[in-house]
């Protein structure tokens, strides 16, 4: 399996570290909604087909990548920097310890 790192080009999978399912969104750190956190930590889509997932090119440029890969054939559909796909934190977010 070759992963096309957007910085280094196609490299063998042994250079990369799998960082798991990218279909989950980390809840707001201030959220105390137990169900939302339980779902984030434990529940997975477990897609059979094109799967969004994070990899790190730990044996190369160390970039964090967002890869779309078929779990049925291992064919890579796309690979980009994870930062490009990241959602920006909301501006209304409070600082830890701040009063509401």
């Amino acid at each position: 399996m070759l992963i096309p790192c957007p910085y280094c080009g196609p490299r063998d999978v042994s250079e990369f570290t799998y960082q798991g399912d990218a279909n989950r969104t980390r809840p707001d750190p201030l959220s105390t909604d137990r169900e939302v956190w339980d779902g984030y930590v434990y529940d997975r889509l477990n897609t059979a087909g094109d799967h969004r997932e994070y990899w790190q090119h730990s044996g190369g440029c160390r970039s964090h990548l967002l890869v779309v890969r078929s779990t049925l054939t291992h064919a890579i559909v796309s690979a980009g920097f994870a930062r490009d796909a990241a959602t920006k934190p909301k501006k209304t977010r409070r600082k830890a310890g701040a009063r509401p």
């Binding site: 063998d12 999978v13 477990n46 799967h51 997932e53 779990t71």
Partner: peptide, 13 residues
């Protein structure tokens, strides 16, 4: 192998 898969075959590492 360490990544999600339904392929019934793995990789060389």
């Amino acid at each position: 192998d360490g990544y999600n898969s339904y392929a019934q075959r793995g990789n060389l590492p």
